[in-house]
Amino acid sequence: MISSERKVEFYKALVEKKTEYEGVFYVGVKTTGVFCRPTCPARKPKEENCEFFETAKQALLASFRPCKRCRPLSHPNQVTEIVQKLVEAVEKNPEKRWKDYDFKELSMDASTARRQFKKRFGMTFVEYARARRMGIAMKQIRSGEAVIEAQLSTGYESSSGFRDAFSRIMGSAPTLLNQTNVLKASWIDTRLGPMIAIADDRFLYLLEFVDRRGLEKEVERLRDKKKSAIIPGHSWPISSIENELNQYFDGQLTEFKTPVFYLGSDFQKSVWEELKKIPAGETRKYSEIANAVGKPTAYRAVARANGANQLAIVVPCHRVINSNGDLAGYGGGLTRKKWLIDHENHGG
């Protein structure tokens, strides 16, 4: 999360259009719903209407769309035809899931599009399109706006476009609020970035950083297993975990009490329960977890179960490391994993 001092610095750079900040940050303008580069020629917004991001992907996941004047998804001094065409194509149809034949219809090679986006933005074009779709769903989850307000703020001229994009992620049109099987989804701001929490009135089912790779599939898997619609909203478990996360990041809590529900195999559940037994400030190796669950040769399966955890921080998969002491993978990113381990080791 960007510090308050850094935000002041970024706003000053935005007002003065300082070119040395190109690529350092992007600014989302709350009143227009677009995000820009620091040197955008448009009239500068008030500071309270600005939201700053270190990457374009973060801005997309926060539901901002790229500015048409400064084109933040293009090189400052060069707007490639491929990048321009693809960004425009996504804005015309944000709910679209791109396949190789879609690139052929635009007379371009899919691998070329992937390379250009990866080189400039640190993500492939398909990842960009996915982030844009996810951002649309996150917009309503984040603010709990009325459907029509969320539709207009994301730039849709038709309600069907917004509804389709939302339902692709969450499994139900946002107006269908009276279904029997409903899960509530809420946006939670934390020191390490925003998270999404999904729960019913009794249990927390999912807690993940919104920029986690594969989050869209995790939501889809949860939706399918529960046979439920997911709508923006709050419930007791969400309020509980939000309060506990605040205490955790303040160094006042190490064990979470919010009731959770595991959606996994018996083996996965046994691994997740074992993870919760690891004391804060300590780490375990995959082999040690395998021994603890009575499957000493199943350390690879333990690693897969670790990666399938849908309750970040609460089920502390970040406390598991490689046998050689390396941090190994983490869905929220290795930087966050290291921060969490250090935070717990030093008591906040």
Rank of each mutant, 00 (worst) to 15 (best):
F53R: 06
G135E: 05
K269F: 03
G135A: 08
S107F: 10
L253E: 10
R163W: 00
Y286E: 14
H343E: 02
A197L: 01
L245N: 04
K7Q: 14
K44R: 07
G251M: 06
G307S: 11
S239R: 11
K338V: 00
M138C: 03
G33I: 14
L60T: 05
V147F: 06
L177Q: 09
F53S: 05
L177E: 12
W272C: 13
Y156F: 15
A131N: 07
M123P: 01
Y21L: 07
Q268T: 12
K226A: 10
S270K: 14
C50Y: 00
R163F: 01
A42S: 14
D189K: 11
E22K: 07
P41F: 02
R97N: 06
A137H: 00
F203T: 11
L106G: 02
M108T: 11
R120D: 13
G144T: 09
A110P: 12
S160T: 12
N93Y: 11
A197W: 00
A197G: 02
I241N: 04
Q84E: 15
M108I: 14
M108N: 01
A312Q: 14
S107H: 09
G329F: 11
L73G: 01
P76G: 09
S159E: 05
R213A: 10
L253W: 08
L204P: 08
K44H: 04
P72C: 04
G347P: 03
Y128K: 09
E105K: 15
K139I: 00
L176I: 10
L275Q: 12
G135R: 07
R223A: 01
A328Q: 04
E273D: 15
L86Q: 02
H346D: 08
G333F: 07
R71Y: 05
C317P: 03
E274S: 14
N322D: 15
A150W: 04
P232F: 13
W236K: 15
F203V: 12
D189E: 15
R97T: 15
R69T: 13
R212M: 12
R213Y: 12
I341F: 07
A301P: 02
P66K: 04
R336Y: 01
D102T: 08
E274D: 06
T112M: 13
N181Y: 06
E5C: 04
